[in-house]
Computed example of a mutant assay.
Amino acid sequence: MLNRPKKQLTAVLLGLAVAAAPATAFASPFQPQPAISGTQYQDRVDAPRAVGLDDPAKKDIAMQIVSSAENSSLDWKAQYGYIEDIGDGRGYTAGIIGFCSGTGDMLDLVELYSQREPGNVLEKYLPALREVDGSDSHDGLDPNFTGDWESAANDNAFKTAQNDERDRVYFDPSVNQGKSDGVGVLGQFIYYDAIVMHGDGGDPTSFRSIRNRALNEATPPAQGGDETAWLNAFLDARVWAMKQEEAHSDTSRVDTAQRVFLNNGNLNLDTPLDWQVYGDNFHIG
């Protein structure tokens, strides 16, 4: 989480591509095109589209499963005001996705909130959040930061800012990488949960390092590999990364949750779902 991903833009030089392509590659608009029968047209219309984790219903399931691990509750929308120091060396952990004062994502969130709502109750903590970034210090935050965070959580603008930062930093990158790797809803969720816990920086236990470790053992479907074999290799690498840090050494969110879904062949993360995290049982019907 300390090394946060940056958006990358890809320029599409369409004009150059068209100029470089042979003329025979393009059909003239004046050439007659084969007729499409009514049956063929209906087949195209009715062809099912692949559902990703960004489907609203699937995304809500993902948020519930992550909340079961982060907050011991499926009610993720009740977590905007959550805040505590869980003793993992990252300072305060708060909100719907565990924004941390020591890893920079909480700073980014409060900066976004302050851009949208100048003078909000958390804005005065921005200098302190910049100072404690990269540490577990509470300097400049105590004793009122936790109470002010809980107050801010009553503001819909703060809730929206949490949603937007969750998507920008964690959800969208994991879904995009999952689609690029050719994995379905479960695989995209497995990526998402890994990014939430480990971030997407360059350290040995970050998401991209976990993925690189898995590449030594298996091949993603987009490169011709078997999806289940690839996801098992990824989860093996994830478990290794979790065991490198005492605060994350309980691997039940993989062993008795994600691995269960995978072993059941539930690559689409369809309900009903039953799993355990840290000894607690959860069900989505």
Rank of each mutant, 00 (worst) to 15 (best):
residue 211 R to Q: 14
residue 215 L to N: 07
residue 213 R to Y: 07
residue 201 G to D: 09
residue 213 R to I: 03
residue 228 T to Q: 13
residue 224 G to E: 06
residue 219 T to V: 09
residue 229 A to G: 15
residue 207 F to T: 03
residue 211 R to W: 11
residue 216 N to V: 12
residue 234 F to V: 10
residue 216 N to S: 15
residue 211 R to Y: 15
residue 210 I to S: 00
residue 220 P to A: 06
residue 228 T to M: 11
residue 231 L to C: 00
residue 232 N to R: 12
residue 200 D to F: 13
residue 218 A to E: 03
residue 203 D to R: 05
residue 210 I to K: 00
residue 237 A to P: 01
residue 223 Q to E: 14
residue 233 A to D: 01
residue 231 L to F: 00
residue 212 N to A: 12
residue 230 W to A: 04
residue 206 S to R: 02
residue 227 E to T: 09
residue 225 G to F: 01
residue 200 D to Y: 14
residue 226 D to N: 13
residue 219 T to F: 01
residue 232 N to K: 12
residue 201 G to V: 10
residue 230 W to R: 06
residue 200 D to W: 13
residue 200 D to E: 14
residue 206 S to P: 01
residue 236 D to N: 13
residue 226 D to C: 08
residue 205 T to N: 10
residue 215 L to R: 07
residue 215 L to C: 06
residue 217 E to Y: 12
residue 212 N to L: 11
residue 202 G to H: 10
residue 229 A to K: 09
residue 227 E to Q: 13
residue 231 L to N: 00
residue 222 A to D: 09
residue 204 P to K: 12
residue 200 D to M: 15
residue 214 A to F: 04
residue 236 D to F: 08
residue 223 Q to V: 04
residue 228 T to P: 08
residue 216 N to Q: 15
residue 214 A to W: 03
residue 226 D to H: 05
residue 221 P to C: 02
residue 219 T to P: 01
residue 211 R to T: 12
residue 235 L to D: 04
residue 217 E to W: 12
residue 201 G to S: 07
residue 217 E to K: 13
residue 207 F to Q: 03
residue 204 P to E: 15
residue 220 P to G: 04
residue 237 A to G: 02
residue 201 G to F: 07
residue 216 N to K: 11
residue 212 N to M: 09
residue 212 N to D: 14
residue 202 G to Y: 09
residue 224 G to T: 06
residue 229 A to T: 15
residue 235 L to M: 15
residue 207 F to C: 04
residue 218 A to G: 04
residue 203 D to F: 06
residue 204 P to C: 11
residue 226 D to G: 07
residue 216 N to E: 15
residue 212 N to F: 05
residue 204 P to I: 11
residue 203 D to E: 13
residue 211 R to C: 10
residue 210 I to A: 02
residue 234 F to K: 06
residue 227 E to C: 08
residue 215 L to E: 08
residue 237 A to H: 01
residue 216 N to G: 15
residue 236 D to L: 08
residue 234 F to S: 04
residue 237 A to D: 02
residue 216 N to P: 10
residue 207 F to D: 01
residue 217 E to I: 11
residue 224 G to M: 03
residue 221 P to Y: 02
residue 229 A to D: 13
residue 208 R to W: 10
residue 230 W to I: 06
residue 201 G to N: 06
residue 235 L to P: 04
residue 205 T to E: 08
residue 233 A to P: 01
residue 223 Q to S: 11
residue 204 P to G: 10
residue 217 E to V: 15
residue 221 P to S: 02
residue 212 N to V: 03
residue 204 P to Y: 11
residue 228 T to H: 09
residue 210 I to F: 02
residue 231 L to R: 00
residue 219 T to Q: 03
residue 234 F to T: 06
residue 209 S to I: 03
residue 205 T to Q: 09
residue 232 N to I: 08
residue 227 E to N: 09
residue 231 L to H: 00
residue 224 G to H: 03
